[in-house]
Design a protein around this nucleic acid. Structure first.
Length: 203
DNA sequence: ATAGCGATTGACT
DNA sequence: GTCAATCGCTATA
């Protein structure tokens, strides 16, 4: 799922305005057996959405000031989610800049908490159905030609798992340095599989 | 009831 | 490269 989401569109309707971007960086988190996951120690009020149906938004508050957005990926009862770490801004860039208090788009959404701030995403959207929602949803996109892979960023455990994926060559990927294995580039382009992110692949 | 700290960012050296 | 901001989740008592 972390790979499939690269190239898909992420859309919000923020105060009536359509804001969107192309997903260029993701990270996979599991549950039991993944010490870096919020779901590692079982279900709590905070991580409950991770234990629910696939294709929903798990939005969590962190560091006392930031929100991050995940896409849930597993069947009810078995936790799993993909953290969206960066998008390339597409629609409503002007308003995204305003949300972030910036003048240029270079760093407007190249980090997990930056993209939520740019798109106006906060705890109100926790649990939102990303397939059927009218205010926060995923759209089909084009599969990137080359996809990079590395250890996950910003964690202190299980850094050896190479579950961070990004669009190779994109300047909108977060600058966070991988704590695990160095980035490696793979060629995932395949004839006849240009469109990814159908709702069927989400659920 | 409460200490410790985090799937981060931005400012500064 | 270092570090503060800021708050609520989690673990422990």
């Amino acid at each position: 799922m972390a790979r499939e989401l690269l190239g898909c569109g992420l859309v919000t309707i923020d105060r009536g305005r359509r804001l969107s971007g192309t997903i260029v960086e993701t990270e996979a988190y599991r549950g039991n057996g993944d010490p870096a996951s919020h779901a590692y120690s079982g279900r709590t009020n905070r991580n409950a959405v991770m234990f629910g149906e696939a294709g929903h938004a798990y939005v969590y508050f962190t560091m006392g000031m930031h929100y991050c957005l995940n896409v849930t990926t597993e069947s009810p009862g078995s936790p799993g989610a993909v953290l969206l770490r960066a998008i390339e801004p597409v629609e409503g860039v002007r308003w995204m800049l305003k949300n972030r208090g910036l003048n240029t788009a270079v760093h407007v959404s190249d980090g997990p908490a930056k993209l939520t701030e740019a798109l106006g995403i906060d705890r109100r959207l926790n649990g939102e159905d990303l397939i059927n929602s009218k205010i926060l949803f995923i759209e089909r996109g084009t599969r990137p030609k080359r996809i990079g892979r590395s250890g996950r960023v910003g964690i202190t455990v299980a850094t050896e798992r190479r579950w961070r994926y990004f669009v190779a060559g994109s300047s909108f990927v977060s600058k966070g340095r991988p704590s695990g294995p160095a980035p490696r580039i793979h060629n995932y382009a395949r004839a006849g599989r240009r469109v990814v992110g159908s709702s069927a692949s989400l659920v």
